[in-house]
Design a binder for these strands. Sequence first.
DNA 1: CGAGTATATGTCAGACCCGACATATACGCA
DNA 2: TGCGTATATGTCGGGTCTGACATATACTCG
Lengths: 104, 104
Amino acid sequence: MDKTKQKRLEAAGWHVGSAPEFLELTPEEAEYVEVKLALGSYLREFRRDHRWTQTQLAKRLGSSQSRVAKMEAADSSVTVDLLVKSLLSAGASTKDVGRVIAAV
Amino acid sequence: MDKTKQKRLEAAGWHVGSAPEFLELTPEEAEYVEVKLALGSYLREFRRDHRWTQTQLAKRLGSSQSRVAKMEAADSSVTVDLLVKSLLSAGASTKDVGRVIAAV
DNA sequence: CGAGTATATGTCAGACCCGACATATACGCA
DNA sequence: TGCGTATATGTCGGGTCTGACATATACTCG
């Protein structure tokens, strides 16, 4: 996974929902990034549904506000692993998480 | 996540499908481990369906045979991140991956 | 049995990730 | 405008993960 490329890409703001075929990502890399984006969005949705601020969620997760912000934005320094762990910790079910991934 | 505990636990062979409530894992930790186990099993199934050896799959993934063995066994040194990346790289769809997680 | 093949287990150096902190931006309200 | 709150962005030390290698185990076939 080319971190620099991904950084540029996220900086460009395509996390609004578009697919990155126009960049030189292999289909698998693109899918991985899309999974990350979907989980990040879902984390944000989940948090808002519970009326938590990023700081409050961070406390629950044993993390920091900045990390939550990065998770929700699917920053390149965030992995699917962290997102799954965080969602489960926050109270989401594996069913929910699976659905989000399957819907990518 | 307590690595040592998880190691003991996997050594005990409960990756055959049982839940680890009897150990001092929080429900979230248990869920995470189960997601890992499910993805590991699915990777094995996927590989066998395609009649690949671990070595052949490793080559496709740009990894090594030993790492594939550990992935399939959901070894503690393996993360959900690696499993998702590997499955997508191997040709599984996000739909498949999502289904596996949702079924945990 | 011995050779070949497939899988499992242990270890390690280097790359990567995470939480933390500092700081910036954005918005509402007095 | 100035203050409080919420979110975003940049950076970094220390701990974790990964690919690689060595080696062990298991099974098949001659």
